[in-house]
């Protein structure tokens, strides 16, 4: 259905398009890391409240995603990957997307505040503001470091999950935040190297487009090198046990090894970009397993299987 079809203009948007507006694919990692942050946090939380907190984090992320698409409809329209999203696809008007995003954001923050705590609600509100305004409106069109800053938005869920349980901020949830923050650039730039994302056409300064492939490869390597000691810091400060510590060493070591292969090579046209694809695939596996090991470590300590 296109905007040229007059029927499309009077038809109210399909509920499935509202659902698509929340970026359900992204939400999977949001929910997973939030649950891990919760399970790894010291303390207990009633299952109903735990469910509510996760739901609020997910709905808040959905609201931010809807606001992002409301703002970026023009940019999405010129990129192949995003041209069929509800607004550029002509299946929804922008106002509906904006109202939907505002409603989801408001409801999730209020519910978090009333059911869990106003600290968790405040951070959730800030994370929505961070993604839908600081990132989407302000920084994304202005700097090739946009992915670095955007990574912050994805780094909030485990932090909020943890704080929902403990009720206060300590070093551990901040470290979880920093790990995802440092993980995002190499993860995304690996993708940007092998998928010729048409960001340049949309006027978005993506790193490989602006700074060139070579500089992007070096930066991937730099972030992976920082990630290795950073991911082990929870163990160093005594926040986790040896189960997590050694897992982080192995997982981040592998991450660094794959990044070295990407970072020190020159891409040739038609070489298939295998190392980049491998790094991207591994980066997703890495984050899932690292956070899972955080939870495993917690239970290992709780049941006396480690000091």
């Amino acid at each position: 259905m296109s905007t040229a079809n007059p029927q499309a203009l009077i038809m109210p948007a399909d509920w499935r398009d509202f659902f698509a507006l929340t970026k359900p694919g992204v939400m999977r990692l949001v929910i997973f890391t939030a649950v891990c942050g919760m399970l790894a946090a010291p303390g207990t939380i009633h299952p109903v409240l735990a469910f509510t907190a996760i739901l609020c984090i997910a709905v808040g992320a959905g609201g931010a995603a809807a606001l992002n698409q409301w703002w970026e409809a023009d940019i999405d329209a010129v990129m192949k990957r995003t041209a069929q999203r509800p607004i550029p696809g002509g299946r929804m008007d922008r106002t509906s997307a904006r109202d939907f995003g505002v409603a989801l954001s408001g409801i999730s923050v209020m519910t978090m505040g009333l059911a869990i705590s106003w600290l968790a609600a405040g951070i959730l509100a800030f994370s929505i503001f961070y993604y839908s305004y600081l990132y989407t409106v302000w920084l994304k069109p202005r700097t090739p470091q946009n992915i670095v800053i955007g990574g912050g938005a994805g780094a909030f869920p485990p932090l909020i999950g943890w704080i929902a349980v403990t009720g206060h901020i300590t070093w551990m949830p901040v470290l979880l935040f920093l790990i995802i923050f440092m993980w995002t650039p190499p993860h995304f730039w690996a993708l940007a190297l092998f998928v010729q994302i048409d960001y340049s056409k949309a006027g978005i300064p993506m790193m490989p487009v602006v700074a060139g492939e070579r500089s992007t490869r070096r930066q991937i390597l730099a972030y992976a090198a920082i990630l290795l000691p950073l991911s082990m810091t929870p163990w160093f400060i005594g926040g986790t046990g040896v189960v997590y510590g050694l897992s982080a060493l192995l997982l981040s070591g592998m991450f660094l090894w794959l990044s070295i292969k990407v970072g020190l090579r020159e891409g040739q046209p038609g070489d298939g970009m295998k190392p980049e694809k491998r790094l991207f695939a591994y980066s997703i596996f890495y984050l899932f397993i690292l956070f899972a090991m955080l939870v495993v470590d917690r239970f290992a300590t709780f049941y006396g299987l480690q000091a």
Partner: peptide, 13 residues
């Protein structure tokens, strides 16, 4: 708020 529920042990680092 934040008091451990009855019968559950508080897990502390």
């Amino acid at each position: 708020e934040h008091a451990p529920a009855e019968g559950t042990e508080r897990m502390e680092h």
